[in-house]
Design a protein around this nucleic acid. Structure first.
Length: 568
RNA sequence: CGGGGCAUGGCUCAGUUUGGUAGAGCACCUGGCUUGGGACCAGGGGGUCGCAGGUUCGAAUCCUGCUGCUCCGACCA
């Protein structure tokens, strides 16, 4: 390809709409243009990179036994109503009607379609396992599309669905996908971690998110500094903190006027914050009021709390709801609350000795609180949010909190969809059984964005070789110098012939412009053809990532460049 | 959905406070000159100032309503 024919409109200035590096750079380097909020056109450079990512995905999916199909983007409402997700997805789904007023949606995912596809045709356990996948556009009417391709309303996703006869089979399929994902993201050159995640409202027993580490990432993860444990902060487990042996003192109510915050209480009582118990009140979707208690210096993890009490959604409780159950805002404690409410105590609180907590009376706290002795029959769970330096649940070494971009997820669905859509087969004993399913997604367009988040500098993108739109660019310094152009052409032809994915920048621009564009677009290597090349037979090769410059001889540059590329 | 901000040529923005001839840089076209890190000179084209009302002799500027974009929050691959 010649740059003079390439549609890659680069921008000198940063468009005002972009916030994060990947978005800014994709706009500036001429990779994408916005069509509407969260909807983008992929220009030639982006499309090449996407196709390279897809190719890697296809190779690994096929190697793991996957078969590629293509399912419709537009899907009938009936299937979604049958699975019960027409309303669950709700506003987030793009819905439309045809001329006969039949309802459709633009697929946000394809569990319904695929389950429907196989439910009437796969009848026997002998046809299993079955792994089908596609690379397809997905649609989600995001409340707030942002960050360019990171959170769009239309995005490219690879989704594979596995069908097995039993849990053991699912475990095998899951492992295959887990391993394939590891290979895929490694081949893409990304720095990533598979992290344990919460399965959320979709249900399911086991799930890992593949997260590309990046400062701008939207999800927060806890990574062990010693072992390979990594988990989404929503999921990251904590073990109960042991307390020192202390003689239990007698429970006592004391006046603590005006101490509505934990800080005020401990200052007033001259206690350390580790001796305080904090109350946090929530209401769920059924308007149940939930009283959660946690050590003063800890924070409640609302996903853990949701799971602990079986709620779908939690929000802060209203004052009236708190008082209705005997709580007094600022002075709420577990002792003396009405029995017909939900009380959850963090596991670490149960080990505390001679602590303090609210007495459910204005201006009053209890001291010498010993939860094991004083709280009676309460629900004890791990509801605490992990923080930097907390011990790893596997090896005990401190964990580190870091941010990442979720680029893939592997998920054991079990029989959730095969159950609701009545998709069954006959097992060895002739018994009808629902398929045991798994689903496995990769955000393809998001992976491209994640790569840029990981690899860029002040001058532009620095593509990993495997997913760069072109592996190399040849810059002729002076397009009007026919000797230079002739040599550039010669090298271009030779490199192409040897299998290098190369672009020839033959534009009639000044050298500076071409250099700036090459850095911005981020070709892994740049070959410069100037006077030195013509007069001294020196082929100059610059590595984008390191800035290293190599001078190769005109007669032997090709193997040298190949070797250089193979090391990138 | 709640709270900010913005909307002026393809891009980045000034002009709006205090109403009076629509601007700059970049990009684009022509010619010249230049060619190792986003040159320079000369000439040129392009904007009903987001939309709809209103106030006024006169509105980019003041008022009302709407739309779009964007940032923060609740939601999420």
């Amino acid at each position: 390809m010649r740059a003079s024919n390439l549609y890659a409109p680069t921008l000198r200035e940063v468009p005002a709409e972009a916030e994060i590096p990947s978005h800014k750079l994709m706009l500036r380097a001429g990779f994408i243009r916005k069509a509407a909020g969260g909807i983008y056109t992929y220009l030639p450079l982006a499309w090449r990179t996407l196709r390279k990512i897809e190719r890697i995905i296809r190779e690994e999916m096929d190697a793991a036994g996957g078969q590629e199909i293509a399912m419709p983007i537009m899907q009938p409402a009936e299937l979604w109503k049958e699975s019960g997700r027409w309303d669950v997805f709700g506003e987030e789904m793009f819905k439309l009607n045809d001329r006969h007023d039949r309802e459709f949606c633009l697929g946000p995912t394809h569990e319904e379609i695929i389950t429907d596809l196989i439910r009437n045709e796969v009848r026997s356990y002998k046809q299993l396992p079955l792994l089908l996948y596609q690379i397809q556009n997905k649609y989600r009417d995001e409340i707030r599309p942002r960050f360019g391709l990171m959170r769009g309303r239309e995005f490219i996703m690879k989704d594979l669905y596995s069908f097995d006869k039993d849990e053991a089979g699912l475990d095998v399929s899951y492992k295959k996908m887990y391993d394939a994902y590891t290979k895929i993201f490694s081949r893409c050159g990304l720095v990533f971690r598979p992290v344990e995640a919460d399965s959320g409202a979709i249900g399911g027993s086991n799930t890992h998110e593949f997260t590309a580490l990046a400062k701008t990432g939207e999800s927060q993860i806890a990574v062990c500094t010693k072992c390979d444990y990594a988990a989404n902060v929503e999921k990251a487990e904590l073990s109960a903190i042991k307390s020192g042996d202390e003689t239990e003192q007698k429970l006592k109510k004391v006046a603590t006027p005006g101490t509505k915050t934990i800080e005020a209480v401990i200052e007033y009582l001259h206690l350390s914050i580790e001796k305080s118990i904090k109350a946090v009140m929530f209401q769920d979707e059924k308007d149940r009021v939930i009283f959660a208690f946690i050590r003063g210096d800890h924070d409640v993890n609302d996903v853990k709390l949701q799971n602990a009490v079986g709620a779908v959604e939690l929000h802060m409780a209203e004052k009236a709801s708190i008082t209705a159950f005997g709580g007094v805002p600022g002075f709420t404690g577990p002792i003396g609350l009405k029995k017909d409410t939900v009380i959850v105590i963090d596991q670490s609180v149960m080990n505390m000795k001679n602590a303090c907590c609210g007495a459910n009376e204005e201006g009053q706290h209890y001291i010498n609180v010993n939860p094991q002795r004083d709280f009676g029959d309460v629900l004890v769970k791990d509801i605490r949010q992990i923080k930097d330096g907390d011990p790893c649940p596997h090896c005990g070494a401190p964990v580190q909190l870091t941010r990442g971009i979720e680029i893939g997820q592997v998920f054991k669905l079990g029989i959730k969809y095969s159950g609701s859509l009545r998709a069954t087969f006959l097992d060895e004993n002739g018994r009808e059984k629902p398929f045991v399913m798994g689903c496995y997604g990769i955000g393809v367009s998001r992976t491209m964005a994640a790569a840029i988040e990981q690899y860029h500098d002040a001058d532009g993108i620095i593509w990993p070789k495997a997913i760069a739109p072109y592996e190399a660019v040849i810059v002729a310094i002076n397009a009007k110098d026919s000797a230079q152009m002739k040599l550039a052409e010669e090298i271009y032809t030779a490199m192409k012939k040897s299998g290098i994915d190369v672009l020839l920048d033959d534009r009639k621009e000044r050298a500076g412009v071409k250099f700036k564009d090459a850095d911005l677009i981020g070709y892994p290597v740049r070959i410069t053809i100037g006077p030195k090349a013509v007069k001294e037979n020196i082929i100059e090769v610059k590595v984008r990532k390191t800035g290293e410059v190599f001078n190769f001889d005109r007669n032997s540059y090709l193997p040298a460049v190949q070797k250089l590329l193979s090391q990138l």
